[in-house]
Amino acid sequence: MKQHKLFTRRRAIITGIGALSGLLLPGCSKKLPPTYGNLLRMGDAFTYLAHRTLLPGQSLAREYHHGDITSFPAVGTIDPGDASKPAHNETYGRFRDNGFSNWNLSVEGRVAKPGKYSLAALQSLPARTQITRHTCEEGWSAIGQWTGVPLGLILKNAGILPSARFVNFYAYDGYVDSIDLLDAFHPQTILAYGMNGKALPIRHGAPLRLRVETQIGYKSLKYLERIVVSDEFVDQGDSGWAWYVGI
């Protein structure tokens, strides 16, 4: 009997490899986080490329009603001013004791106008309030209301250079992380100073935290100190955690 197949295994494999290499091709440029030759990180890089290639850009996360707000656990660092904890930061402790009156956020790196923003300066800018779902990598989730300045506005004001590709965040509790410009200019990516209609509580990241609503909770760094815009991915070493966590 003559073989009669619509497509052979060989053709299926060749098509598959072709499709995969199409997705992985941008990996040749230095615009991507390193995978350290690690299979797990390659999987995460593949997820990132697939999301950036296949998902419609900058879709808004669902926003809820005030009545939907739920209880909200605070995990990770809950006070960098606590001298008994490894995440202790003396400078943060002094700001905390002054009610953050002399605190400021530094915006630097690949921007035309680097500068510092006091809490009052941030609060005088056009604000965005959103009631969104926080999804923790641990498995739980919570709904909270966040008020703050869109990160895109701060970046535009600082005159982000055309070659810039990543926004890096440095926090008082020692955390460092970065996001790409698609997330940085997402309308719901904000620098939040308010939670549930009040000043951001210390355990939730006072005086200022990041909110990235299209990624898992740990990308929304608390206790922000510095924002550094960069052309290339700033390698902080493999933390053991995925860099892109839209999943």
């Binding site: 995460d44 997820t47 909200f72 605070a74 641990e138 053991g240 995925a242």
Partner: peptide, 27 residues
């Protein structure tokens, strides 16, 4: 009213590799 509380317990958490392996295998 909804509440907030800080966690004081060091939880078991191996999700760093657990999640990455899960998604790689899921692909």
């Amino acid at each position: 009213s909804p509440v907030s509380a800080g966690r004081t317990y060091e939880i078991f958490n191996q999700n760093g590799w657990g999640r990455s392996l899960h998604f790689l295998a899921a692909w």
